[in-house]
Structures are given as structure tokens and as C-alpha cells.
Simulated assay, not measured.
Amino acid sequence: MMDRWSAGDATDAERDALWQDIVQLVFSHAFAEETVLWPVLRRTAPDGEELTGQVEEEHQAINELIARVEKAPGDPRRAEWIQQAFTLIRQDIRDEEDELLPRLREAFDDRALRRIGAAWEAVRATAPTHPHPGVPRRPPGNALLGVPLSVFDRLRDLAPGTGPRARRVSLTLTGAAAAAGAVVLLVRSARRRTCA
């Protein structure tokens, strides 16, 4: 998808759609890694802290760059920033495939890797899909903030188009989801007090 975006043979609308698909894939993928894979690697590899710290720095740089792209849709530097993001993403992929994932392979048998992979996939399927540079890169902070951000992002992804109207629709849907979540929490809290 990055190659197709860079080739320049797609229409502006196709390139925008490609970009949105890339952003959604990158952020859900990275969130799942940070929530599931890297904590496991830190516990099992003697140099896991150093390895995951480097990848988390790469993720943060990607996060900040893509946030800049999303906040400035009309900026003439947008294409340059996107290419910089692609370079960082490719480097991140290399580091993970060449360094981190082989360490997990060495530490676990196939059955354990399948369990870790299933947990990764479950988190990825429900992860935020847009940049949030202020969110911590490690659990529990990323997981606690990731849930409401995921709801917000996925509702935003459903809102057609961009611009003020789409943002209003997204914020309205997010507010409704947050209100529903608050009601559920209040009901559970009331039940616990009644049972206690």
C-alpha cells in the first residue's frame, strides 16, 4: 500500500483512502505489539528492555509524524511527511522482523506463540486506529487509555468524509458511546453496593 501511494498513479481520492487504510493498520498493529508482545519480550529476553525501548521510540516518532499529517491536510509538506512516515514504518518493520520477533520465537514453543498471537490479534482488532502521541507506550497506561480512544477512532472511521461536519458527527457518536459506557459503569457500581 505504501508503494502504491508513492507510485503516484492513483487519483487523489484513492491516495487518501490508501493513506487512511495505512494509518488504521499501522496504529492498531503497533498498539497490539506494545500491549501484548513487548511486555512478554521484556520478561523473557535479557536485553528485552533495550530492544522494546528502541521500537517504542520508533512508534512514538511515527505517531507524532502521522499526527502532524492528519492535523494539516492542506499543508504543502504533507506528501514529504508521508514519505518520512513510510521510511520510519519500513525501519520499524525491519527492526521487529530482524530483532524482536526472532527473540520471541527462540523463547516460546509453537503452542505458546499461537496463544500470544491470538491475544495480539484480539487487541489489534479493538485497538485505536489513529495517532495519539500523548498516550503512554506501555501497559497499563496504554491499555486504559486505549479503550476510549479506540471507540472514538472507530466511530470517526465510520463518519463519512472529513471536515467540520464529519468531526461533529464523530464527536456526537463518541459522546453517545461515552454516555452509554458511563451508564453501564454506574449500574454495575450500584449493583456491587447493593450486593455488598
Rank of each mutant, 00 (worst) to 15 (best):
R114I: 07
R105D: 14
Q84T: 09
E96D: 11
D21A: 14
V55D: 05
R103N: 04
A112M: 13
E70V: 10
I82G: 11
R4S: 12
E106M: 10
T52M: 01
R42D: 08
L101S: 08
E99R: 15
P46E: 00
L101F: 15
S6K: 10
Q54N: 13
K71D: 15
W38T: 03
R124D: 08
R15A: 03
E106F: 06
T35S: 15
R42G: 02
D109L: 10
A112Q: 13
K71E: 14
A13H: 00
R115Y: 11
I62N: 02
R114G: 06
A7R: 12
H130P: 00
L113F: 09
W19P: 09
G8I: 06
Q84W: 02
L101D: 02
E34Q: 15
L37T: 06
H130W: 09
E97A: 07
W120H: 15
A61N: 10
R4Q: 11
E58Y: 02
E121C: 03
E80F: 02
R68S: 11
R115C: 10
W81T: 00
D75H: 14
A32R: 01
R78E: 08
E96Q: 15
W5V: 04
L101V: 04
T126S: 05
E57N: 09
W81S: 10
W38S: 07
D92Q: 14
G74W: 06
G48L: 05
P73Q: 13
S28D: 02
E121V: 02
R43D: 09
P39D: 05
R4G: 07
E33R: 11
D21E: 14
E121L: 10
A127E: 11
V55W: 00
L18R: 08
W81V: 01
S6I: 01
D95E: 09
E96N: 12
D47W: 01
G53W: 03
L37V: 04
I62D: 03
T44D: 00
W81M: 08
V55K: 01
H130Y: 11
L101M: 12
R105Y: 02
S6A: 13
D98V: 11
D110Y: 07
